[in-house]
Design a protein around this nucleic acid. Structure first.
Lengths: 234, 234
DNA sequence: TCATTGTATTTCACTAGATGAAAGTGAATA
DNA sequence: TATTCACTTTCATCTAGTGAAATACAATGA
């Protein structure tokens, strides 16, 4: 094949990429956005204006682009309703308990193509702690989350990994869906100095327990079974 | 003009509209999405698959589309960082205080084309209260928020309006930016039975005070001035 | 088990619509 | 006032998006 799969929409892909660029940057000029997206300024401008016209982007008096009200509406809707909200809502109590028990920050992550995205957290209460990774994407390759999200259901432990940031250790467990596939990962992240050989075993157990409990909740939160319209295997 | 402004991207606009459709629906089949967006199924499928390919959408085993990890990442980023986060973060304490003082639910809204979007809230603690409008869009015409967002800086009171929902009364005040334009609106919404002729005057005063205080915070949160690279008027 | 109905998917000829180089405009700096 | 840099507009070129129709698939009922 010449470039990609059979027939997508080039302009749509570019517009989405530009949207991603602006959201990630927070606020960005036409020139910078075009450079980041790898487009001629005239093409970038046309797309950015279209996005602005539809309310996905705003433009300040100096010409810089930022997120607009339409995108905000969609963002809030996606995070408060819909399938993703179920997952994070179900996971939150388990993350909270993990953070309390282990004293470190707990995260929920899902897979995005060849990256992992952290979509929920409960922060450690310690002064030195792992913070601010919600909304952030990290590569799958070489990370504990990545190994877990692409793996076959095994828990993963990475000690003092330098893959994303140095001096961070992680214990990660997969959350399996009804069909046995990995739908998410629960992880505890903390300074390698605290998560040493001894303590990380206990943390791993806690993470595995939390993942198992979440799996149970996702199948039938209140002991009720069969909330979907399927026949079910005998 | 034949249909719209000079030259946008049709396919990009359609893809965005489909994204909006799926996010709003939470989970939707190809046929329904195509119907809602007013597109032939073949065209809708191509776009939806492109969106799925990029991670903006997910597809469950039954073929239904829902929000994907890429969109989740952008949603979280937009709501936690960037210009919009400043606004909601600055507004939250004022909304909380408004809800406490008035006993009703307080909202922050911004303009989206010909609609108003609620982007933050502090809920009333009463049993009967106004809830769940965050992420929701209402028309500008005929609503108190709409009048305020399009108006010239005057506070607006609507009693027992049937514009969006019956038996709801509202007191709304504009939040002005540095250049005097309306950047947002703060509103208190509650049952018309509680917000009667007498009480709504007090509520209106409280809303106006909150809007004024927020304006002050947006200009210089901690008494520090000149955090932007401009000369400033004498 | 075999028809039936309602989706989802693939194909393909057509041309509407996207593209980007280059010229133009405007507003900061020096 | 000259210079520079960023944004905007234009327009000839032709790629890439379009959608009707045919096909495959899956779920229901007889």
């Amino acid at each position: 094949m010449t470039s990609s799969a059979l027939h997508k929409s080039r302009s749509a892909e570019r517009a989405l990429h530009l949207l991603d660029t602006v959201v990630t940057a927070g606020s960005i000029s036409l020139g910078d956005a075009a450079r980041v997206a790898g487009l001629p300024t005239s093409t970038a401008l046309r797309h950015l204006r279209a996005l602005e016209h539809d309310g996905y982007l705003d433009r300040d008096p100096h010409g810089a682009f930022s997120v607009g009200p339409t995108f905000l509406r969609l963002a809030l809707t996606a995070l408060r309703e819909g399938p993703a909200a179920h997952l994070t809502k179900a996971a939150q109590p388990h993350l909270d308990r993990l953070a309390e028990v282990t004293g470190e920050s707990a995260y929920l992550a899902v897979r995005e193509r060849s990256r992992a995205v952290y979509i929920a957290t409960a922060e450690s209460t310690r002064a030195i702690r792992h913070v601010g990774w919600v909304g952030r994407a990290v590569p799958l390759a070489g990370t504990a989350v990545g190994t877990t999200l692409t793996g076959d259901g095994e828990a993963t432990v990475h000690r003092n990994t330098g893959a994303v940031e140095p001096d961070v250790s992680a214990a990660v467990a997969p959350v399996l869906g009804a069909d046995g596939t990995v739908v998410a990962a629960i992880s505890v992240l903390g300074p390698a100095s605290r998560l040493d050989h001894t303590s990380i075993d206990a943390v791993t157990d806690a993470v595995l327990a939390a993942a198992g409990a979440l799996e149970g909740d996702l199948r039938g939160p209140a002991g009720q079974r069969g909330d979907r319209h399927d026949g079910g295997a005998p």
